[in-house]
Design a protein around this nucleic acid. Sequence first.
DNA 1: CCATTAAATTCAA
DNA 2: TTGAATTTAATGG
Length: 249
Amino acid sequence: MHLTPTSNKLEIKTSLDGSCSVCKTANCLIHNNAEALFNSKLPQSNAVINCKKGQQFIIEGAPVNGLFFIKSGTVKVFRTGINGRQQIVRFAKPCEIVGHRGFGTQEYYSIGAIALQDTKLHYFSKEHLQEALLKNPKFAYDMMLFYANELNRSENKVKSISQMTVRERVIDTLLYIHRKFGDLRGFINLPLSRKEYADYAGTTEEQVIRVFSLLKKERLINTQGKKIGIINVQTLKNEISEHNYFLDS
DNA sequence: CCATTAAATTCAA
DNA sequence: TTGAATTTAATGG
């Protein structure tokens, strides 16, 4: 896929094409429900958006019009705290939804979202989604599962931030990224800065760097620049097992 | 938290 | 493809 190299604007083109080129995954919402989603007669209600690395496509406080499916790339979803520090709420990968908290009653986005890599998004308006949900129970059910899962994870995150030590939170974050984005040649398959680990774990960049150094000394992880390799997943899991490590998303 | 140095990444020639 | 410019990591105060 070729992206226009110099444009700073979001590239938007409407598309009534139902094909989702990237995802062949069995449990992809958009893929499984393409029929329900794409035979709408509503004009201008869905579009493919190309988003360059580092580009913000949801602004906190902006009015909600719809939501986004990720077709390719990865995205971080965050909320800005009182002192301007950003708290990363979650990372999202292809086949996932971004902006869904605004769906329904809320008028404004309470979160922001930035592309971590060049990312293709598929946008649907609220009306479009509503139509598809009402028409198609299977789609509605899949959406509900997604929401339930997100809620579960977010409840657990509250707990982890309030009850775990910095070291445990960093380990928790590492394991979350690892199981979500997987392993490529021994390194976590997602390049994140130490700051981004910190923003997710609810700590500072320095703390993350120090925990990483320790873990490296203990031969539990490997680091090479931005790339992190987990050597011993089990030992890390054990260390936070008292805090209910059993989530799968 | 800030300052310094080392290291890695990006960019453009 | 290289190296200069910029960004990021790591450490110590």
